[in-house]
Design a protein around this nucleic acid. Structure first.
Lengths: 128, 128
DNA sequence: GAAACCTTGACACGACCGTGGTAAGGTTGA
DNA sequence: TCAACCTTACCACGGTCGTGTCAAGGTTTC
């Protein structure tokens, strides 16, 4: 059997069944389903549920914030857009001549995109 | 003068003065202050305000989400904790022998931390 | 076939988010 | 000096988050 139903998983992890469904809808932990549609929590999911609780407590985060971090990690375009905004105006290094600014920016974004897609590829490889 | 007061900045960027204060409290755009405490928006801040609006629209994000992304980028411990959680259980590559798992994880985290602090250093250099 | 599970969907409710407004008071400039 | 700004600190209000509960119906087990 080696997989728990939702209330069993709830009582061994300290979450409520309601919250397990909520965590699933947030995209954080999606257990496999039985033929009839019952959620089946394996050892991996149980462990993730326990560490998720620690993560939320210790880092003072919310479930939606973890979900957003997940979105950030998956959506390369999004993280590139954010990185671009953060790295923009606030204090462009005075030693970079203004004419080179655009190129500098473009190069940085290029590197960032390359790194991001490299990471995405790694994920693909490890999960298949 | 070359710096705008809050209502001027508001009308040229399309935000409301109220929202400029809100964006500031979120830690996203913190204009310098005059001797009397008036907010002074320079060209950099105005540009960031305009691009922030595009960022929110195009990527369908909220101000608090951008604020969280900023926190992520600044708090290395936080991003390491998140990366650790994401990379944990879900599907550890079967080809990596279980005994090597811990080392593999540690190495990955080490690289991540190195990259993060490298990035932090870059930020330091460019902003000083 | 009945008890004890599971499913999704809905209502509820306090807390916070995104906004606007207003009040009480300090600053600036003609 | 006085109008037109600015500041912070509140009240308000619809929307979403985190959480519980309940209803209507399918599944598993004895």
């Amino acid at each position: 059997m080696d997989a728990l139903t939702i209330h069993e998983a709830a009582s061994t992890t300290g979450w409520s069944a309601r919250m397990l469904r909520y965590v699933e809808r947030a995209g954080l932990i999606e257990p496999r389903r039985s033929a009839a549609g019952y959620r089946l929590y394996g050892a991996a999911e149980l462990q993730q549920l326990r560490t998720l609780r620690e993560l939320l407590d210790e880092q003072k985060m919310s479930i939606t914030e973890v979900a957003f971090a997940l979105r950030l990690r998956r959506d390369v375009e999004l993280s590139a857009a954010l990185a671009g905004w953060f790295d923009a105006e606030p204090a462009r290094p005075a030693d970079v001549p203004a004419a080179d600014w655009l190129l500098w920016e473009q190069d940085k974004h290029q590197k960032l995109l390359a790194a991001a897609s490299r990471h995405a590829n790694e994920l693909m490889e490890t999960t298949t």
